[in-house]
Design a binder for these strands. Structure first.
Length: 204
DNA sequence: AAAATGATCAAG
DNA sequence: TTGATCATTTTA
């Protein structure tokens, strides 16, 4: 188990989006650690990408952390009720990042069950377990990720990503990004990546 | 199929 | 200041 270093995040955004699959997200702020295996991501590629919050160089209080260099967390709130976790990428100031869309629960499931359903882990139905972290808003609820993580350095101790086993093999599939129909010529690019046949991918 | 629900942003 | 939008989830 090895924490990903700065150079990982400084790579090209599409590379990071693919390479994050199979890595382990750690949340260690105020409870016992919660760990999830990343199984689904989407790339948002800065000023040219009409789906990206930083499209056309848009720079506001919300998007400010996207202009940090790679290896920071970007958290935004959507539809008034859900948070989404992104990983800032690149070595420039372009405003690029990767949305984490699906996690496979690995550790800290008791805490996740409480956060997401206010229930004990062993009281959850099969359906509830399956739906615990298979979506960007769901996984943030389960891991208690909100704006307190916005701008956090992923090389720190509160939120970070590790590689466990380099021999872990899986098939990577790609497809169109979800719910960005407004993005015109960018709405159909295959910048969503996921581990094939993993049940914690948000959509089939 | 449609409601829930409020921060965000660009326009005025 | 305001109105439309929205990288979602849940319920029906």
């Amino acid at each position: 188990m090895k924490k990903l270093d700065k150079s990982f995040y400084l790579q090209d955004t599409l590379t990071v989006a693919k390479e994050l699959l199979g890595k382990y997200l750690y949340i260690c702020m105020d409870t016992t650690p919660m760990i999830g295996r990343i199984v689904e991501t989407e790339a948002y590629i800065g000023p040219d990408d009409k789906a990206c919050h930083a499209y056309n160089g848009r720079r506001t209080s919300r998007t400010e952390v996207m202009y940090k260099n790679g290896g920071h967390a970007y958290i935004y709130q959507i539809y008034g009720m859900y948070f989404c976790l992104n990983i800032v990428t690149g070595d420039n100031t372009a405003g690029t990042g990767v949305l984490i869309r699906g996690l496979e629960p690995i550790a800290g499931m008791e805490q996740m069950a409480e956060n997401r359903y206010n229930k004990e882990w062993d009281q959850l139905s099969v359906k509830e377990i399956k739906n615990m972290t298979n979506g960007p808003g769901k996984l943030c609820k389960a891991l208690n990720i909100d704006k307190k993580y916005n701008g956090k350095d992923l090389l720190g101790k509160e939120i970070y990503i590790c590689e466990w086993d380099k021999t872990d093999k899986f098939v990577i599939s790609s497809g169109k990004r979800i719910n960005i129909g407004y993005a015109e010529e960018y709405k159909d690019v295959n910048w969503r990546f996921f581990i094939e046949n993993n049940s914690y991918v948000s959509k089939k």
